[in-house]
Design a protein around this nucleic acid. Structure first.
Length: 605
RNA sequence: GGUCCCGUAGCUCAGUUGGAUAGAGCAUCUGCCUUCUAAGCAGACGGUCAAGCGUUCGAAUCGCUUCGGGGUCACCA
C-alpha cells in the first residue's frame, strides 16, 4: 500500500533535511565520496546536541576510524554551515548542536503557517469503512476502539491531503434481528423507546436477550425430554419461528417488513445518539438489506473466467491453496450466498459508487483470514483496484478480569462506558480544579467534563498500537495525570490562559531573530518541527498512536519549559515576544494533533 | 495439526528504515506553589527486551529454533 503514499513534502525549512544534505556535501568535500542519502537521529538526552549522525557505516568506504570521521565532518559543518553551532564526538556518534538563528527561523516559518503540518492535496481518494454494527444490540467497548480508529485514520488521511469518504455498513438483516423481532412480538406489548425510556438500540438489545433466555429454556426442556442438545437447538419451536420469520422477510411479507423497519429505525436513532455524543459521523451508510444479494453475478463472472469451479453438488469454490490459503466456498449448492459472496459484490459496488483509489476496512483481527481471501479473490478476478485494498486490523480489548464475553454478561456497553467516563472525569476534574471553574455555568461545566471524559477515553484507546490486543482498565482510562488525554488538554488550557493575559488581539506572530535560546526552548521548537513528519508517518502506517505519542511528547516538553522559564514575567521584551510565539505555536499544534484523534481541547480548565 | 499475530520494569504501554548506558505513565518513596493554571515539575526505586542460536563493527529491532498467550482454518456474519 505504501507505494501509493509519497513521502510528505515539506514546503517550509526542514532542518533535518538540510543538515543531511550538508553532511553529504561535507563527505564529498573531505573524502571525494558520494554516500547518497544520509540519515540522522535525535540525540540521546544525556549528550549535548539535537541531531546525531552515526559514522560507523562509513569506516569501510572512507577507511578512517569512526571518531576521526566524526571530528572532520563536525569541524567542516561548523565552518561551512549556518545550521551547526557546535559538535561533539563520542566514538562513532557525531552529535550536532543547531544554531539559535536556525531554530528561530524555523519557529517563525512554522508560526506563520495557518495549517501547519497539513499535506498538500494529492488528488487521491480513500474510502474508510468502520463501525459496521449489527442492529440487534447496542454498541460496546470493542466498537469504540473500532470507531475511534476509523474516525482518527480518516482525519489523519484528510489532513494529509487525501479525499476521504467515511462509510459504515450496517448489518440490519438476518437471523439476529429476527430473534429480537420475534421476542418483541411475543413480549413487547407495543413498548417503544418513548414508553420505556430506553434508547432504541438498548430496547432492541433487551429483546434479543429475552429471546436468548426463552430459547435456552426451551432447549433445556427438550433435552430433559430426551432430545440431544444439538437436535434441540435446531428443532426448538422458537428457532423454527425465527427461520420462518427470516423467510417471510425475504419474501417481503408486509407485516414482517413493517415490524423490521420499526425496530431498526429505533436502533438507528439510538446509534445516532451515540455517534453524536462521541463526535463521529459517516459520509455514507450502507445497509446489508440492500447488499446481501450482491455478488452472485461476480460468481458467474468468476466461473466464466475459470477463477471459480463448480463441484458435483453445484456449489461454487475457489482454490487458493497455492497462496497458502485454502479452498473457499463462494456459493452454496442451493444457490444462496455466503458472507464472502456478499463482500465481493459490496466491494465492487463501493468502488463503483465512489471510485476511490483505495479502500480501507477497519475490522477486528479475527477477520484477518477473511480479508486475505477476499483480496486474493478480487486480484484473481482482475479488479483494477485489487492492489489498493487494505484491512486495518486491530486487536481485541480485554478487561482486567479477562476477555469480554456476552454470554457471561461482561461486555462493556458503549453508552454506559461513556456516561461513566464523563462522570468520573467530572468528579476528578472538579476536585483538581480547586476553584478554577468558579466562573463556569452548569452548562459550561457539563461541556467541559464531556470534553475531558471523551479526551480521556479516546486517548486511552488510541495511544496503543492498533495491531496489539490491549487491556482496558476503567480506573486508568479516566486518569487525568501522566500520559493521558486530559494531561495534554491541560497544557492547551494553560497556554490559552497565558495568551489571554498577554492581550490576545495583539499577539506577535514571529519571534525575534537574535535572542539566545535555552535548551528547553530549542527542544520545544524541535518537537514542533517534527509534527509534519509524524503526520505523514501516521498517514502512511494508518497509525493514530503515532499522533497520540507525539502530542504527549510535545505537551510534556512544554510543561518542562513552563516550569523552567517564565513567559509573561520575562523582562527582556525580545525573549518575551519569542516565548509568546512559541507558546502559541505549541497550543495550535496540540489542538491540531488532538483534533486528528477526534479530541477537542478546552480554552480553560 | 496448518497458518497469522503477540511476548519489553510489579502493572499498562512507547521504542521511527539495526546504533550510545532500552524509555514513558501508573504504583511506591523524596523534594518543589508569596511567582504566567501544582490537573504541574524534578529526583529515587524498578529490566537476562520470553529462551537459545545465527547474521554484523553493532540486535528489543533482521533470520532460524524452542517455550508461552491469542486469532483463524464454518455451506456463521
Amino acid at each position: 500500500m505504501s507505494n501509493l503514499l509519497m513521502r510528505y513534502l515539506c514546503s517550509i525549512m526542514d532542518i533535518q533535511e538540510d543538515l543531511s544534505k550538508a553532511i553529504q556535501r561535507a563527505i564529498a568535500d573531505l573524502y571525494q565520496q558520494d554516500m547518497g542519502e544520509v540519515t540522522l537521529q535525535p540525540t540521546k538526552k544525556e549528550f549535548e546536541g539535537t541531531y546525531t549522525f552515526v559514522t560507523f557505516p562509513l569506516t569501510k568506504t572512507l577507511r578512517q576510524a569512526p571518531a576521526q570521521i566524526g571530528q572532520r565532518i563536525g569541524a567542516w559543518l561548523v565552518d561551512n554551515s549556518d545550521l551547526v553551532s557546535a559538535f561533539n564526538v563520542v566514538q562513532g556518534f557525531l552529535n550536532l548542536s543547531i544554531a539559535d538563528s536556525a531554530w528561530l527561523g524555523l519557529l517563525g516559518e512554522m508560526a506563520g503557517q495557518p495549517d501547519y503540518g497539513a499535506g498538500d492535496k494529492r488528488g487521491q481518494s480513500v474510502m474508510v469503512e468502520f463501525s459496521s454494527p449489527n442492529t440487534n444490540k447496542p454498541l460496546h467497548l470493542g466498537h469504540l476502539r473500532n470507531i475511534f480508529l476509523g474516525d482518527s485514520v480518516s482525519r489523519i488521511l484528510d489532513f494529509s491531503g487525501y479525499d476521504v469518504t467515511k462509510t459504515c455498513i450496517v448489518n440490519d438483516r438476518g437471523v439476529h434481528i429476527c430473534k429480537s423481532m420475534l421476542a418483541y412480538r411475543m413480549f413487547g406489548n407495543d413498548e417503544t423507546p418513548a414508553s420505556s425510556g430506553l434508547k432504541g438500540d438498548h430496547l432492541i438489545g433487551k429483546y434479543y436477550v429475552l429471546f436468548d433466555k426463552a430459547y435456552k429454556a426451551q432447549v433445556a426442556e427438550m433435552v430433559v425430554e430426551g432430545s440431544t442438545q444439538e437436535g434441540a437447538e435446531k428443532k426448538a419451536p422458537l428457532m423454527q419461528e425465527v427461520q420462518q420469520m427470516l423467510r417471510l422477510w425475504e419474501q417481503g411479507d408486509p407485516d414482517t417488513v413493517a415490524l423490521w423497519q420499526k425496530l431498526n429505525n429505533w436502533v438507528y436513532a439510538g446509534f445516532d445518539t451515540t455517534y453524536q455524543s462521541i463526535g463521529v459521523s459517516f459520509d455514507k451508510t450502507y445497509y446489508e438489506s440492500n447488499t446481501y444479494l450482491l455478488g452472485k453475478e461476480v460468481v458467474e463472472e468468476g466461473l466464466d473466467k475459470g477463477v471459480f469451479y463448480r463441484k458435483e453438488d453445484s456449489s461454487v469454490w475457489i482454490d487458493l491453496t497455492d497462496e497458502g490459503l485454502d479452498q473457499k466456498l463462494v456459493l452454496r449448492a442451493d444457490g444462496t450466498s455466503v458472507y464472502i459472496t456478499q463482500d465481493l459484490g459490496t466491494t465492487d459496488m463501493k468502488a463503483a459508487d465512489f471510485h476511490t483509489d483505495r479502500q480501507i476496512w477497519v475490522v477486528g483481527n479475527e477477520q484477518d483470514y477473511h480479508f486475505k481471501v477476499l483480496f486474493a479473490i478480487l486480484r484473481r478476478l482482475g479488479r483494477p483496484y485489487a492492489n489498493e485494498l487494505y484491512h486495518l486490523s486491530y486487536g481485541m480489548v480485554d478487561l482486567p478480569t479477562g476477555k469480554m464475553k456476552s454470554r457471561e454478561g461482561t461486555v462493556v456497553d458503549a453508552d454506559d462506558l461513556i456516561a461513566e467516563t464523563v462522570a468520573a472525569a467530572a468528579t476528578a476534574a472538579d476536585e483538581a480544579a480547586k476553584g478554577k471553574l468558579a466562573a463556569f455555568s452548569d452548562t459550561e461545566k457539563a461541556e467541559l467534563f464531556h470534553l475531558l471524559g471523551m479526551g480521556a477515553l479516546k486517548y486511552y484507546l488510541l495511544k496503543v498500537d492498533p495491531q496489539k490486543r490491549m487491556q482496558f482498565n476503567p480506573a486508568e482510562s479516566v486518569d487525568l495525570h501522566g500520559n493521558t488525554g486530559p494531561y495534554i488538554q491541560y497544557v492547551h488550557a494553560r497556554i490559552r490562559s497565558i495568551l489571554r493575559k498577554a492581550e490576545e488581539t495583539n499577539l506577535p506572530d514571529s519571534p525575534v531573530a537574535t535572542v539566545v535560546l535555552d535548551d528547553v526552548e530549542q527542544q520545544l521548537i524541535f518537537w514542533l518541527s517534527q509534527f509534519p513528519l509524524r503526520v505523514s508517518e501516521a498517514a502512511q502506517d494508518l497509525a493514530p498512536s503515532y499522533i497520540a505519542q507525539y502530542a504527549y511528547d510535545l505537551a510534556r516538553t512544554f510543561n518542562q519549559f513552563y516550569d523552567k522559564l517564565s513567559i509573561l514575567k520575562e523582562e527582556d521584551p525580545k525573549k518575551l515576544r519569542t516565548r509568546l510565539v512559541l507558546a502559541k505555536s505549541v497550543a495550535e499544534t496540540i489542538k491540531r494533533a488532538m483534533g486528528l484523534l477526534g479530541i477537542s481541547v478546552p480554552e480553560q480548565m
